[in-house]
Design a protein around this nucleic acid. Structure first.
Length: 496
DNA sequence: AGGCAATTGGG
DNA sequence: CCAATTGCC
């Protein structure tokens, strides 16, 4: 047994960073105050993650993120230990065993809001409160805390624009500040480390982490830089050189115009607060240098996207059914979605015969990421032209995205499917060919991912003629855009 | 965070 | 013949 009188434990989940981490800073502060060591843990949940459709590439990205995190924690003496619980229902057992093995006095973690995660945490609290001195949870996922924004009637907002207005008023009134760095804590002594080692896997080598992750199906994610340092580099690169043009370039899939940080937000390598603070600070500097409102519009638009993320997190927290495959608008559950597995497969594989849709779907399959504009285009084609159940598309995205994040992915799909609150009105159906002409005018993006069309001219590449398709060995469109659009509108209209 | 077709008004 | 505008889905 350890000579030190116990320790403090931080449980990492979707907050894989040292900076601006409320629970971690609180844990380290408590440990420092009481001269206790601080240990950290992370729990691998193979079966649960399968049920949650976590993508193999996202799990590989997690593996690499944990390695970066573990190295940073090792340097501070806050060693990271890996535990395995097949499903969330096993987590209380697994944690209790570890907590007892290391004699943890207090457990710290940041809240998660989807139904299963919430239930897991309730069960953990019920199990551990009797055997520990204290449990501490912190609000972290969203920039403004969940349940903090309410209408004058005290209700959660259901529409983005008034929500955003209220969000901005709140942040103007009391600016967002970041959590201080976790203070240094005493190094755990040998008996404590030995006890922890017997109960879990210490993540002090890449090999040790890889062995634990051998229980999972992984897809190589090394094209995507991982870890906190990489995340800050990427954020800085965006803020310094691309954010100014975000407003005009973000809708062009052929251009690197978006922030490229969604994968870091998805697993908490970065917090939304950090992004917001960096962006508002950069905008303030520009204005101080005399920049016009127009010149800072890129920053303002990007900040608005961060608020969309908060909106969807808040919406899911206030409406837990959203994390259980339920539409926000209950009546849309009566829609008779098509049963069309060959259409579904053509969409997945990128051979629908609509060039931009196919380019986008191939980008997802090949890289694990898809441009935001194209997520809307492909989801709209899926739900309105193929008239397939949005839940199938939502699941396919989660299973393939390196940056899959339930609130945003669900929010985006329900927006496209017109089943969500403040969603696209059912009659506002994107035409993927028009979208192609306006956002990929020279077909540059299409050429990149649908190489068989590379030699077509800028005009016909968006919708090649019969002979051109034949010559390129490219399929005819699997649906007629005009008639399927009209049918979808008709079906939605009949709901009311 | 649209699309479409009918209409208008200038060449 | 055309771009811009309008009303509806």
């Amino acid at each position: 047994m350890s000579n030190q009188k116990g320790c403090v434990l931080h449980w990492f989940r979707n907050d894989l960073r040292l900076a601006d981490n409320p629970a971690l800073t609180a844990a380290a502060t408590r440990a420092a105050d009481e001269a206790l060591p601080l240990l950290c843990c992370f729990i691998i949940c193979p079966e649960q993650w399968k049920q949650h459709d976590e993508a193999p590439i996202k799990l590989d990205f997690l593996r690499r993120t944990l390695w970066e995190l573990a190295k940073a924690l090792e340097e501070r003496g806050n060693y990271l230990f890996l535990l395995t619980a097949n499903t969330f229902s096993e987590v209380p057992d697994v944690l209790e065993t570890f907590v007892k093995a290391i004699d943890a006095q207090a457990l710290f973690f940041n809240e998660e809001y989807a139904v299963n995660e919430h239930r897991r945490d309730q069960a953990v609290a019920g199990r551990l409160l009797p055997v520990m001195r204290s449990l501490h949870s912190y609000r972290d996922q969203s920039i403004l805390p969940v349940k903090s924004i309410r209408t004058q009637a005290g209700e959660p907002y259901k529409v983005f624009t008034p929500y955003k207005r209220s969000w901005l008023e709140l942040t103007d009134g009391s600016p967002i500040s970041l959590w201080p760095k976790p203070p240094q804590t005493v190094t755990p002594d040998k008996p404590l480390v030995a006890a922890a080692n017997r109960a879990a896997t210490r993540a002090n080598t890449a090999k040790a982490i890889d062995e634990v992750f051998a229980a999972l199906e992984l897809t190589d994610s090394t094209a995507w830089a991982a870890g906190e340092d990489a995340a800050h580099d990427e954020l800085e690169a965006f803020i310094d050189s691309r954010a100014e043009d975000y407003d005009t370039l973000r809708d062009k899939p052929a251009v690197n115009g978006t922030s490229q940080i969604s994968r870091f937000l998805a697993n908490g390598t970065l917090s939304g607060r950090q992004c917001y603070v960096v962006a508002t600070e950069a905008r303030r500097r520009l204005k101080a240098e005399g920049a016009s409102e127009h010149a800072t519009k890129g920053f303002t638009t990007w900040i608005s996207e961060l608020i969309w993320r908060d909106f969807y997190i808040h919406l899911m927290t206030d409406n837990p059914r959203l994390s259980m495959h339920q539409p926000f608008k209950a009546d849309t559950d009566q829609l008779q979605w098509n049963d069309d597995s060959s259409g579904f497969e053509a969409w997945c594989e990128g051979r629908t015969g609509i060039p931009l849709v196919d380019a986008a779907m191939r980008q997802l399959k090949q890289t694990g990421w898809m441009h935001n504009r194209l997520r809307m285009v492909t989801a709209m084609f899926f739900t309105k032209n193929l008239f397939l159940d949005w839940r199938l598309g939502e699941r396919y995205f989660m299973r393939n995205l390196v940056d899959g994040y339930l609130p945003s992915n669900n929010g985006g799909w329900q927006w496209s499917a017109s089943t969500g609150t403040d969603a696209a009105p059912y009659f506002r159906v994107f035409n993927p060919v028009s979208q192609s002409r306006s956002h990929d005018p020279d077909g540059e993006f299409i050429r990149r991912f649908v190489p068989e069309l590379a030699d077509l001219d800028n005009k016909s590449i968006h919708d090649p003629g019969k002979a051109q398709r034949k010559a390129c060995d490219y399929p005819e469109a699997i649906v007629d855009l005009k008639t399927t659009r009209a049918l979808a509108i008709e079906r939605f209209k009949n709901l009311g």
